[in-house]
Amino acid sequence: MSLRSPLARVRGLGSAKDGTSHWWAQRLTALALIPLTVWFCISVIAMSGADYVTVATWAGSPLVGGLLILLIVATFYHGALGLQVVIEDYVHREMVKLVMLLVVKATSLVLALTGILSVLILLFSRT
């Protein structure tokens, strides 16, 4: 039991100065994902039933490779931010929450890196 009032306890600690950064990053990635997703869907549909060479040549061109990397970055960033909010809303045991948040972030990072490296391999192994 402290004799200090709640106000006295927080006074001077200041804000973290990034109150809206999570919200803003989620909106920006959402905005970026609209054209990227539409482009990706149209491309994949157009290649339905296409052979390996067609897909590898497509993914290995500089423009497509670049857009794919942007799609990967925006997707996993947006996804990690979204899953973070879901976990924070529903998981109330501090330790479980912390572990889940770290697992989501680590998994997103690994998957994003794996995807980016795959695109780079296709780009540099282009024949």
Binding site: V55, A59, I72, L111, T114, G115, S118, V119, L122, S125
Partner: peptide, 9 residues
């Protein structure tokens, strides 16, 4: 999606 990209690579 990641599996598909790994497979292509």
């Amino acid at each position: 999606l990641t599996y598909w990209l790994i497979a292509a690579a």
